[in-house]
């Protein structure tokens, strides 16, 4: 290996690592707020990328039907519980978010031909379509079990993951898609050529992380999420709705997931089930951060990206083996350094 290849691999690793870092931050967030180990995060990566790809080839993405269907189910569940508890004032909001909003998105897709829109509009439309699926998933799968043990929530996560992967196959078929790069240009520094998409990924990741940091530090909702993460009961006593916190954290996670997918789609071909492995690499990062530290999780995820890039050069067939075995020394370290008191049911 010479320096040029090393730089090239480093660039690859950093790009993927940035994506994993975004995902690992989202995973830590969801775990801290809801105690959910969010395995389905990867499916949002695939949904984001494949929805955008569908728009670009002039197809209506199947995720639209999922949005409409999930919206109807959420509306039915919420309306029946609102009527039973006599809280009629919630009805407009329920109808608005779960029935009217998907209808509006469907209308926009129908009126404008998305394939002819500029890229930015396509991306916004993809996000508008995929991101609300996050909180809807929370409402349907997790919220009725919000007080259950981590173990039960984890099994739910796996069930959601399976269902979403199956739906992904149904919507997008078994073929993969790759979207064109955001910009054609590239940057030359000495002998190193940095592709435009790499810059997009790094720039977008950094921006998103800064925005998230500001959100958590400066806004009341960000502070509410941090409070819930620290102490659920305490937060609830202070008037913070844990349901709201759960939905908000899932909203942020699905935003991060879908955006990651859109960013990475020009770099690697995305299949309906690619998201799982991408998400799990985010998890390896998150575990480096012991599922609690954002900076450590992000650093761990970058390490995963670099390790993956370099091992694909030396032993490409064993790339995944090496990446997922990284978790072992991390677990050794964690188990030597933490004194743990088991959660009692």
């Amino acid at each position: 290996m010479n320096i040029e290849i090393a730089l090239l691999l480093g660039q690859d690793g950093l790009t993927n690592g940035a994506i994993y870092a975004l995902l690992s931050v989202a995973l830590v967030l969801v775990f801290a707020v809801t105690r959910v180990i969010y395995i389905p995060q990867g499916e949002f990566v695939a949904f984001g990328a494949l929805t955008l790809a569908s728009f670009q080839v002039g197809k209506t993405p199947g995720t639209l039907w999922l949005l409409i269907g999930a919206g109807v189910v959420v509306a039915l569940v919420d309306l029946s519980s609102a009527l039973r508890s006599g809280q009629r004032r919630h009805i407009p909001r329920i109808v608005g978010w779960n029935l009217a909003y998907p209808a509006v998105v469907a209308g926009v897709i129908h009126l404008f031909t998305p394939a002819e829109l500029p890229l930015l509009a396509q991306i916004v439309l993809s996000l508008a379509l995929v991101v609300p699926l996050g909180p809807m998933t929370y409402r349907l799968a997790y919220q009725p079990l919000a007080e259950a043990s981590v173990l039960v929530l984890l099994i739910v996560s796996v069930a959601v993951h399976l269902a979403l992967v199956g739906l992904g196959l149904l919507f997008f078929g078994a073929e993969g898609s790759r979207t064109p790069a955001f910009s054609e240009g590239s940057l030359s520094v000495g002998s190193l050529t940095v592709s435009g998409q790499t810059l997009w990924v790094l720039g977008a990741s950094l921006t998103l992380i800064v925005v998230l940091a500001l959100f958590f530090e400066r806004t009341i909702y960000g502070k509410a999420l941090r409070a819930t993460a620290m102490n659920r009961t305490g937060a609830r006593l202070m008037g913070i709705s844990t349901v709201m916190a759960g939905k908000l954290s899932f909203l942020l996670a699905s935003l991060i997931g879908a955006l990651s997918g859109i960013l990475i789609a020009p770099i690697t071909t995305i299949y309906y089930d690619t998201g799982f492995l991408i998400g799990l690499k985010g998890f390896v990062g998150a575990i480096v951060g012991a599922l609690s530290s954002y900076p450590l999780a992000a650093a761990g995820a970058l390490l995963v990206g670099l390790l993956e890039a370099f091992s694909s050069f030396w032993a490409s067939a064993f790339k995944e083996v090496i990446v997922f075995t990284l978790i072992i020394p991390v677990l050794v370290w964690l188990s030597l350094t933490t004194r743990h008191v088991e959660e009692e049911e």
Partner: peptide, 24 residues
């Protein structure tokens, strides 16, 4: 490796190990 940590590290560890072994 995992059982001294809280309950959810075992499933996460086994996910990683089972993917590794599959590719192996």
């Amino acid at each position: 490796l995992t059982l001294r940590l809280s309950g959810h590290y075992l499933p996460l560890g086994t996910i990683a190990w089972s993917i590794s072994l599959y590719f192996l």
